[in-house]
Computed example of a mutant assay.
Amino acid sequence: MVLNKLTLMPHGLEVLLPAGAPLTDLENETSHRVIPFGCQSGACGACVIEVLAGPDSLGEMDPDESDFLEDLGRADGNFRLACQCRLMAAATVQVAEEL
């Protein structure tokens, strides 16, 4: 099984997840609640993250996610909905600051 490293800033917390694992698996892998997952279906926006490194490591963004991020004012490409991401390779993220 291939494991990929997700680094969560600003804590510097490093978590290993199986390749292709959804980021929602973080809730089972750490006692720290570093990403506030809400609905887990991409409809609430609670889990907006800023991708600091490895944007291509989080899987393809589908049009619904892209449209929703645009509605939230986060359409510049550095932002994702964590609940819609799968860790394909190493990445570094942080919870997005509120606008």
Rank of each mutant, 00 (worst) to 15 (best):
G20D: 12
L26N: 03
A75S: 13
T24W: 10
E97P: 15
I49H: 06
S31V: 08
D71E: 15
D56S: 14
F68H: 11
Q84A: 05
V34C: 10
G42H: 01
A43K: 12
C83V: 13
E98G: 01
V2P: 15
E97W: 01
G59P: 15
G12P: 13
P63G: 08
C85Q: 08
R74H: 12
F79D: 01
Q40M: 14
L23A: 04
E98P: 11
I35V: 13
C85I: 08
A53Y: 01
L26C: 05
E65W: 02
E27F: 00
V15Y: 00
A96V: 08
C44K: 09
E29M: 10
G77E: 05
G12W: 08
N78Q: 02
M61F: 00
L58S: 05
Q40A: 09
R80H: 04
M1C: 02
D67S: 13
N78W: 03
P22F: 02
L99I: 14
D67I: 00
A75E: 15
G42E: 08
D25K: 15
P18E: 14
R80T: 02
G20I: 13
D71R: 03
L81S: 04
S57P: 10
P18G: 02
D64C: 03
H32N: 11
V93P: 00
A53S: 13
A43W: 12
G59F: 14
N4P: 03
H11W: 05
E14L: 01
L8N: 04
C85E: 11
L8C: 05
S31R: 11
D76Y: 03
E70A: 09
S31C: 03
D62W: 07
M88L: 11
S41L: 07
G12T: 02
D56Y: 08
A91R: 03
V2T: 14
L3D: 12
L6T: 08
E97M: 05
I35L: 09
A82N: 06
L69C: 02
D71H: 04
P18F: 00
S31D: 14
R86P: 04
D67R: 08
D62Y: 02
L52S: 06
N28G: 05
L13H: 04
I35P: 14
